[in-house]
Amino acid sequence: MKRGWFVPIAASLGFAFLYLPIVSLVIYSFNESKLVTVWSRFSTKWYGELFRDPQILQAAWVSLKIALISASVALVLGTLAALVLARFGRFAGRTLFNGMTTAPLVMPEVITGLSLLLLFVSMELTFGWPAGRGLTTIIIAHTTFCMAYVAVVVQSRLVDMDRSTEEAALDLGATPVRVFFDITLPTIAPALVSGWLLAFTLSLDDLVIASFVSGPGASTLPMVIFSKVRLGVSPDVNALATLMIAVVSVGVLGSLWIMNRRKPTNRNPQA
């Protein structure tokens, strides 16, 4: 279809809008001046500053631990939820189950955070657990909203999947559990990987929910950044952002490269 000039230009402007702030973050992370937006000269001193800041290093470690655990638990729970939604057909309580799985995706974070905190407080008053708030409560909270994302990603893969391969395995004598591990799991593996990565990123990124349910001594990286940023722009945050962007870009480009390299052998010789 012949295309006019309007759509490509409008789309390019849209893409530029998405990347403008990120590019400026990266550029000014190499700025010597303390005034973040006035360029003086190239320097990497803020990166050094970053690695000498014990508060940031400590918080980064806390966030990493939380993200690793929450993403992994969310992966298991979210995959089970996806199986239920994609494969169990109708059952009593399906609407409720479906609602509980998808609602956390759009629930405003302040509500999720507040409600979980109040739950933890009530539980502590009633059962004595969890005693106080900290790592555990943040992990529970993050698992809850991350599993919704995992469920959505895995469910769509399960729905797209060719069911006849599972039936073929059954037909060849594999028990249902065996079919799950031999056929279903390898087929949805890419979705599991991206589901886990998504959960990991979301957990690493969350400020609002963690602020509600965290306790003394359990400050996550976003919480530390937020308190720094509230006081004004600080160049070492630029350096931190650049590092995170670099890690994500390398990861995404790397997986793209791997997928592209695999492609030629995947091609049907007759197609």
Binding site: L18, P21, V36, T201, D205, I225, A241, M244, V248
Partner: peptide
């Protein structure tokens, strides 16, 4: 489109302060 979504939301909002 998705790539920015993978980088910290907080930091992307912060970037606008500088701009």
């Amino acid at each position: 489109v998705i790539l920015p979504f993978w980088t910290s939301f907080l930091l992307r909002v912060y970037a606008w302060i500088g701009l």
